[in-house]
């Protein structure tokens, strides 16, 4: 961890601080308190304004929490907190006002039901996700399934620089704000028309909110420059003449909110689930290698150019890359995003 602390400070004065000494001191302190030092390092305990009190952030990938875990959160809040929980903006349950002397008991209590705290600091955070296609009528892809798998594989992985947020939205409505994530994945669908089946009823043209379909010679024709792959035309077609040719994930990289928000870049289209995993892995590697100090990946890309990221990650993985600004512009054409 010591080298990461150096990277974070990044200034010569502070590098003179005796990191090893500090670490040893912390370790000693944690031993006295019988704290699990690894538990603290992985984060999830957030310092409050009040002396010695912390907010304990629980790990709730995709915002899915079993009733057993809900009862556990209530139990911890009653015993160690104030009988309240806070629902975080990234779908996690947090128990505020927990005294640090109770950390080991809280951790043990969570372990009993195979649960744990979430992460904070320069690590991969708990991924967030909507319901996806499992029960949301707009959903195209299974967000909950992939979110759970990504959480299992990458949760808590150190980036060496800053936080790293991943999110999944099942359709272009993008309830899970993939544009504001370090890496965001959004479900997308490519429609295709079976001309022999089509009755020319125009329902798909009516259903399309993007004006991407128009009737030509009695059949709907799709404008690729407008279609954002939401699949509404497929869902509305009464006789299944408009069908789904392929389904996948649209990958966005470099977004963040905070004091200085960045809107993410669309970098790859129609990713299969396994390609989502390779993209996460290679992107974190690229970020760790190329970032300077405590910057988010969006800033790294801004400094080094999007093409460098595309060449070294997206193209290298053989993904369907989105290179041209026009390919991205359609997603923002009706917003006030000033970057386009």
């Amino acid at each position: 961890m010591a080298k990461y602390i150096f990277l974070i400070r990044g200034n010569a004065m502070e590098e003179k601080i005796d990191i090893e000494g500090l670490k040893a001191e912390l370790k000693k302190e944690s031993k006295e308190l019988q704290l699990d030092f690894n538990e603290l390092k992985s984060g999830g305990y957030i310092k409050q304004t009040q002396k010695d009190l912390f907010t304990v952030r629980l790990r709730c990938p995709g915002g899915k929490v079993t009733s057993e875990r809900l009862r556990k959160a209530a139990e911890i809040s009653d015993r160690y907190g104030t009988g309240q929980v806070h629902i975080s903006v990234r779908q996690s349950i947090e128990v505020p006002y927990v005294h640090y002397k109770n950390f080991d008991e809280v951790a043990e209590s969570l372990r009993q039901i195979d649960w744990s705290v979430a992460s904070c600091g320069p690590r991969v955070r708990v991924p967030t996700a909507c319901a996806g296609c499992t029960y949301n009528p707009n959903g195209i892809t299974d967000c909950q399934g992939i979110c759970a798998a990504v959480d299992r594989k990458y949760f808590g992985a150190p980036t060496g620089h800053h936080k790293f947020k991943i999110s999944f939205s099942g359709c272009p409505i993008d309830c899970f704000r993939t544009r504001e994530m370090d890496l965001g994945f959004q479900g997308m669908l490519e429609p295709a028309l079976d001309e022999d089946l089509c009755t020319g009823c125009e329902l798909c043209v009516k259903a399309c909110e993007e004006d991407a379909l128009r009737m030509e010679g009695g059949l709907p024709v799709r404008d690729l420059g407008r279609c954002i792959n939401c699949g509404d035309c497929v869902k509305v077609c009464p006789i299944n003449a408009m069908i789904s040719k392929r389904i996948g994930w649209l990958a966005r990289v470099g977004g963040k909110h905070g004091k200085h928000p960045y809107f993410a870049y669309e970098v790859a289209a129609f990713l299969a689930d396994d390609q989502v995993f390779s993209l996460i892995e290679k992107t974190i590697e690229w970020y760790t290698r190329n970032a300077t100090g405590r910057e988010r990946i969006g800033r790294t890309i801004e400094r080094l150019g999007l093409n460098k990221y595309l060449d070294e990650v997206v193209v290298l993985l053989g993904l369907e890359s989105i290179r041209d600004d026009a390919g991205r512009a359609k997603f923002y054409s009706r917003g006030n995003f000033y970057g386009t």
Partner: peptide, 25 residues
Amino acid sequence: DDGEPMRNVPRSIKSEGHMIIDVLK
């Protein structure tokens, strides 16, 4: 009506398992 109703209702009817056999403006 055109607009929101035409975007939503036919799709919901279809997902309920009924068949839309004709659409006329």
